[in-house]
Design a protein around this nucleic acid. Structure first.
Lengths: 147, 147
DNA sequence: TGCGAATGAGTGTATATGCACACAATAAAC
DNA sequence: GTTTATTGTGTGCATATACACTCATTCGCA
């Protein structure tokens, strides 16, 4: 099967956005596969880990930190809340919600963390230290393309 | 607001997967913003463009080419089909479906293409030719981390 | 202190993503 | 030629993503 880049007319170039979206899907599947025994996706583990290292953060602040839409974050918490891995309380300012992990949530993160480590190491080995460093730098810059 | 990388314990490293997912979201929003007047998302334009350069391709082949799940592709076509931008016919092998653009679809792609060009150029200028080349190479390798 | 502005959160809607499963049609084996 | 394996597609389900809009609460100021 030909890649789209081989069939594009010569006067055009492959879409950088589709390139990163494809790579993102592939890497996500790679990590999800590694995390499978934990019952968490990489997205969920990432969210839980953010909550763990910033106890009692509000939804908006957490969204800013993760650079994800506030409403997306809100919905992503739903299955984790249902599973009893996190709790959502009203803060002093009753507009805010304070998010924190339950004991069960902490256990789940610690468990998934080991599998995550395997995937992380595996990717590092796959790309090589130098390329991984460059990639990290480039992704950070890309992320900053929007305010 | 602190970045998660600044609050992680020293003995851990930031997640490469979350890094690429964040960057992917940002770049997607950047392109979607540029494509806004066209009424298409970058994902939709990418799909339509693939169909345009490979007239009468089947769903499975298109999915392989785009490296996207077959069922995801199937559903992504829905709004474009509803909008009359593409047609789905049964192939000679009656298990298959032949996808092609309508005239309206071709016009929509050509229109969005101009706006895409702006975003593409803008990103190239933002990263610089050298870094963009390196990025493209790294993304291609990442994509190949899964079969 | 009371009113308008700003902030934090939730919901409706729509698209994107992929796994598990089911079904129909073709291809392969015998 | 019939049976079996393979292939191409569709659907149910669950999660991920973000925009537009609404609502409640707090803040700032006159």
């Amino acid at each position: 099967m030909k890649n789209i880049n081989q069939v594009y007319p010569k006067d055009s170039s492959p879409c950088n956005c589709m390139n990163i979206r494809r790579a993102s899907r592939a890497v996500t599947q790679f990590y999800d596969e590694a995390l499978k025994p934990s019952g968490l996706t990489i997205s969920q583990m990432g969210l839980l880990r953010h909550i763990k290292v910033t106890e009692m953060i509000t939804i908006s602040d957490l969204a800013k930190m993760m650079r994800i839409d506030r409403t997306t974050l809100n919905r992503n918490m739903k299955p984790l809340d249902d599973a009893g891995l996190l709790v959502i309380r009203s803060g002093e300012d009753s507009r805010t919600r304070q998010i924190s992990l339950t004991d069960e949530g902490k256990v789940a993160v610690d468990n998934a963390w080991k599998m995550w480590g395997e995937a992380q190491s595996s990717l590092k080995e796959y790309l090589g230290k130098e390329d991984l460093g460059k990639l990290t730098q480039l992704l950070a810059k890309l992320e900053a393309i929007i305010p």
